[in-house]
């Protein structure tokens, strides 16, 4: 519980730090979640996406 209390006292106790925590937490979570779910999407669909086949055609461009 000591950890919980420390977090509460440091972040959630005052409205200002609470709001700041919510905003920053949202940004950090979104960055992580987005890259996690995109990498999962790319893993599930490996070989089917344009990203997986583009190299076959981009070389011909140069």
């Amino acid at each position: 519980m000591a950890f919980g209390n420390a977090v509460y006292n440091a972040l959630f106790r005052r409205t200002s730090t609470f709001a700041l925590t919510a905003v920053l937490g949202g940004v950090v979570f979104e960055r992580w979640y987005s890259s996690w779910s995109d990498s999962m999407w790319e893993r599930i669909n490996r070989g089917k996406l344009w990203k997986d086949i583009a190299h076959n055609y981009e070389e011909a461009d140069e």
Partner: peptide, 16 residues
Amino acid sequence: WSHKGLLSALDHQSIR
């Protein structure tokens, strides 16, 4: 179809 699943992308080689 290989794009039928809830999380299945279209097969872009096939689109080409």
